[in-house]
């Protein structure tokens, strides 16, 4: 694990909006979290809460209709002895500096292994693309590196895979290839956007264990985006819970599972089955569904579904992120003394 808590990535108050024909969609409205070097951060939330957009912001690859309107992403790059803070959100997306960071410092793997490789080029071609871009090696060295990285993700017959076209590989193999490409330049931060969602359970387990092994081996930091709390429990050191474009709670893995504070996190946990469950316990569901990002509730975004809804407070004022413990932040009026002490703001 990390020698000391040294920050590698800070996401501060990130706001990203998409301008669509039917108006502005406020995809991110305050995403805050910090990631320490060598740690695995799980970003959890229901579909549509902005997890993938957060990943795109970190890569500075927001689709053309989207715009980062506020906040920042700061990457602390190691050079020599110290670290240098790079404000990614301030770099032009197509700039040389940004392209140097992508793939080299921060790499990403995607949700759909079936469509994340270009069908017209061999695996080797796409792997060499990354290697030749970021490393100063000649052709044979590049090839050796490529084969080695395929070997490292435990693909049998790496030579054969190297010469294969994506359609000749299975989903699990393709995801291994994606991981190989991502790790080929030894990035310090890996963003994994639901890397196992599209895979069957067995393959999922294999890919997870591979990722954990690789993390142990390289000590890279990982942002693991998922909606699967089981995966989080297996993979992560830290957890950031997102709801409708905001991070509502960030803390370490144990606190997340054993003493979560935010009602949404609590509700999420109640909705997963447990082995030690009483047979008669009915699995709870979170009432309602995630509202459309174009019609977001006022005040706290979770209040219409919240079991601990405070009338006169929650629907009127947006909660701010408060520190409830060392390394534990919650965005909820229940823990904000200033808010709950004056519930009579309404007439």
């Amino acid at each position: 694990m990390a020698d000391r808590a040294e920050t590698i990535l800070e996401v501060r108050n990130l706001h990203t909006h998409f301008h669509t024909e039917s108006g502005v969609v406020r995809a991110l409205e305050g995403v805050d979290f910090t990631l320490n070097r060598g740690q695995v951060l799980g970003v959890v939330g229901e579909s549509g809460c902005g997890k993938s957009v957060t990943a795109q912001c970190i890569m500075n690859m927001v689709p053309s209709r989207g715009r980062i309107v506020d906040g920042s992403v700061i990457y602390h790059q190691r050079n020599g002895q110290g670290t240098e803070a790079i404000e990614i959100t301030a770099l032009p997306p197509k700039s040389r500096e940004m392209r140097r960071i992508r793939g080299n410092e921060i790499a990403m793997i995607f949700q759909e292994p079936m469509t994340s490789l270009d069908p017209l080029y061999t695996v080797g071609n796409q792997l060499l693309e990354a290697i030749n871009l970021h490393q100063d090696v000649d052709r044979t060295e590049a090839r050796t590196l490529a084969i080695h990285s395929l070997d490292r993700v435990q693909l049998p017959e790496p030579e054969r895979v190297f010469a294969s076209y994506p359609h000749q590989l299975s989903g699990g193999q393709r995801q291994r290839v994606m991981i190989a490409i991502a790790l080929s330049c030894n990035p310090t931060l890996l963003i994994a956007d639901e890397p196992t969602t599209a895979l069957d359970v067995t393959t999922q387990a294999q890919i997870l264990s591979l990722m954990r092994d690789l993390q142990d081996e390289t000590h890279m930091s990982i942002i693991f985006i998922t909606h699967d709390l089981g995966v989080v429990a297996e993979m992560c050191d830290e957890v950031a819970v997102m709801y409708l474009g905001k991070v509502v709670e960030q803390t370490d893995i144990d606190t997340t599972f054993y003493s979560p504070r935010h009602p949404y996190t609590q509700a999420l946990l109640r909705s997963i089955p447990r082995l030690d469950d009483d047979q008669d316990r009915r699995l709870e569901v979170i009432a309602g569904s995630v509202p459309d990002p174009s019609s977001i509730p006022s005040g706290c975004r979770f209040h219409p579904r919240c079991p601990e809804f405070l009338t006169g407070v929650c629907e009127q004022r947006e909660p701010v992120l408060v520190q409830v413990d060392e390394g534990h932040q919650v965005r909820c009026h229940l823990y904000d003394e200033t808010a709950s002490s004056q519930p009579g703001t309404q007439p």
Binding site: M61, K94, G103, M108, F110, Q111, S116, D118, I181
Partner: peptide, 16 residues
Amino acid sequence: LNMQYVQAARARGLRE
């Protein structure tokens, strides 16, 4: 341009 492999290529740091 919206396909994931284009995003993935971009994420590798390729020139636009």
